[in-house]
């Protein structure tokens, strides 16, 4: 699709581990228009965070990234080391799960924002600080001037995540990669941060890739949802389509395992039986097969192709082929 700000094709990520390799991501396709938000939904080990980091080449040396990643008309996988550092934080920036760990504990938060601005824009310290101040006001941190001089441990979790967002937006990036940014926060703070992100997204025209394991959060923030399982996107579509007409058994399982308002005290949550596959020895065919309620023998024959259910809504399940 032309005009896309992010275009990922057939992304694979392999990790060397001991003697063998682990394929954490196998063939992910993802495309984002400017100003669009896609939620990568999945459980731990489904490859969502690895996918996110691969888009910034922020993976350990023991990994190998394959496929194609184009962001803002640049081939990310072909960038030189110097180009890569100029790209990170400028074109694409990232916010992390635990803002308490993502700031350097011994530098003032304001200085950490300023160093980013200076790094990418080469402006003066005073101008960089001014930018920090504006951003702190923008993310609604009270008494921003004083807070800039805080050390990370002097802020609350919610405020730190706001500061992290301010830092991520400091150089006006076009794409924001969010790695479970609300998981470590209280429920009320979570909502505030999500609302803030949505507001900023409109204002800045950001494309956001939002990794989460929480369907509620995904629905709240995203235009589209891509459900990941064992390194593949098994279902993707608009929020409404994925929630209302879930087509992959895994998505259905995820939806069924949520609590809802009409639940009684003794009603049990419906869990998906089993556990995610060992990625160093994935099951043949559909990786979800061994846990699938409607497993048939042909499921193990081949990896199911992506089937269009309607325009923009696809799932990888052979039963949809019929």
């Amino acid at each position: 699709m032309s005009g896309a700000i992010v275009e990922v094709n057939d992304l694979t990520v392999d990790f060397r581990a001991g003697r063998g390799t682990i394929r954490a991501v196998c063939g992910v396709d993802l495309s984002l228009q400017p100003g669009e938000t896609v939620a990568l939904l999945g459980e731990s080990g489904s490859g969502k965070s690895v996918t996110l980091r691969a888009m910034m080449r922020l993976l350990p040396k023991s990994s190998r990234i394959g496929g194609r990643v184009r962001v803002d008309d640049r081939d990310v996988l072909a960038l030189s080391a110097a180009e890569l550092t100029a790209y990170r934080g400028r074109t694409v920036s990232m916010i992390f799960q635990d803002p308490g760990l993502a700031f350097d504990p011994v530098y003032r938060v304001g200085d950490q924002i300023a160093e980013t601005v200076i790094r990418h824009e080469g402006c003066s310290r005073a101008a960089a600080r001014q930018r920090g101040l504006e951003l702190f006001e923008r993310v609604r941190i009270p008494s921003p001037g004083r807070r800039l001089d805080n050390f990370p441990h002097e802020m609350s979790g919610g405020m730190r995540q706001r500061a992290m967002i301010a830092l991520a937006l400091a150089c006006r990036p076009k794409v924001l990669l969010a790695d479970e940014p609300t998981t470590a926060l209280d429920a009320t703070v979570q909502i505030q941060v999500l609302l803030l992100l949505r507001e900023l997204q409109r204002e800045f025209g950001l494309a956001i890739v939002f990794v989460t394991h929480d369907i509620g959060v995904a629905v709240e923030i995203a235009d589209r949802i891509a459900v990941m399982y064992a390194g593949r996107i098994v279902e993707s579509g608009s929020c409404a389509a994925v929630i209302n007409t879930a087509s992959h058994p895994y998505t259905k399982g995820l939806l069924a395992s949520r609590g809802h308002a009409r639940m009684g005290k003794n009603d049990r949550l419906k869990a998906i039986p089993g556990s995610p596959p060992d990625l160093s020895a994935p099951p043949p065919g559909c990786a979800f097969g061994p846990r699938c309620e409607s497993f048939v023998e042909s499921c193990a024959d081949q990896v199911p192709p992506s089937v269009a259910i309607e325009v923009g809504h696809e799932a990888r399940c052979i039963r949809l082929l019929a």
């Binding site: 400028r90 160093e115 790094r119």
Partner: peptide
């Protein structure tokens, strides 16, 4: 935070 530093292009 070291990864975060790299992520912001340091």
């Amino acid at each position: 935070f070291v990864q975060a530093l790299r992520a912001k292009g340091m």
